[in-house]
């Protein structure tokens, strides 16, 4: 892991095993499957559900600042805590939660390389005991939205400026052959294809079979050799709802050290339904 530009953000399962009881650390599990945490989790891990906890239940948006403060206070997380994220599906949802914490300016966020899959593959123990931490009075300092989140108007400007966009969906979704991700029919859009000029780098190409990230050299080849990015680029990544692209956002920002990467969380469920938004098919 040491070749990555910011290796300090990625920790291995052993680190988590050694620190899950550390009072300065909070371990957060975030999964696609809402019940998975209850079947067993890393000792002292706190469950944060990407939908019920992080998304507003009415507006299509993340929870507001106040609700984020309430959530973290209730979970016993303070701004000083180092929060280490892990989850199912090669850490998709852990990256999504990581990104959301960064949106609200949480300083010390780490990711456990390989997620649940790696932890289980190593035969490490899970527990069903839910640890209740004393509540805190979490206050959001400076929001980070402008730096790491893109909205559709930003994307229009990006197209006009011919700046790089990375489409992290599967090839079939990129070409327009599929109107939804295989097996996720309800995340459909009225139009298929991709944002004009976007390069296709499916997120999964950044992960190994065991759920961990590929090496720095392989990632560099993937994003710079194949997709033509460079570390000084202003990049916008998108997928369908912004979860797979938070995985790519993590890779570009921390593993390859890009300074300007934003996640367009409106993604294809917004763009592919937006009247007169330009689309390319190929």
């Amino acid at each position: 892991m040491s070749e990555y530009i910011h290796p300090e953000v990625l920790v291995d399962t052993q680190w988590v095993a050694d620190h899950s009881g550390d009072e300065n650390v909070r371990v957060v599990e975030s999964n696609e499957d809402i019940l998975l945490y209850s079947t067993g989790h890393v000792a002292n891990a706190i469950k944060i559900d990407w939908q019920n906890d992080l998304q507003d239940s009415v507006l299509r948006d993340y929870v507001g600042k106040e609700n984020f403060e309430k959530l973290l206070s209730r979970k016993g997380i303070s701004p000083e805590h180092t929060v280490v994220f892990y989850g199912d599906k090669s850490n998709w949802w852990a990256c999504y939660a990581f990104w959301a914490f960064k949106l609200f300016g949480h300083k010390n966020c780490l990711l456990m390389n390989g997620g649940r899959q790696k932890w289980l593959a190593q035969g490490r123990p899970l527990t069903k005991d839910v640890r209740e931490f004393p509540s805190t009075d979490y206050k959001v300092g400076e929001m980070n939205e402008e730096k790491i989140r893109a909205f559709r108007d930003d994307v229009f400007r990006h197209i006009d400026a011919k700046k790089p966009l990375i489409d992290v969906r599967s090839t079939g979704e990129y070409t327009g052959e599929l109107l939804h991700m295989p097996d996720y029919p309800q995340e459909g859009a009225l139009r298929g294809g991709h944002i004009p000029g976007a390069k296709s780098v499916p997120w999964s190409q950044a992960a190994r079979e065991d759920g961990t990230f590929k090496s720095w050299a392989d990632l560099k080849e993937l994003y710079e050799g194949n997709a033509g990015l460079s570390s000084s680029d202003d990049v916008v990544a998108y997928c369908r709802i912004g979860e797979r692209s938070s995985h790519t956002w993590f890779v570009l920002t921390y593993l390859l050290g890009y300074e300007s990467v934003r996640n367009y969380d409106g993604s294809w469920t917004e763009w592919g339904n937006l009247v007169r938004a330009p689309i390319e098919k190929s």
Binding site: E32, D183, Q186, I241
Partner: peptide, 11 residues
């Protein structure tokens, strides 16, 4: 539905 959300009713 409200607990799982539309996204998770897949399949």
């Amino acid at each position: 539905v409200s607990l799982l959300g539309m996204m998770r009713l897949s399949g």
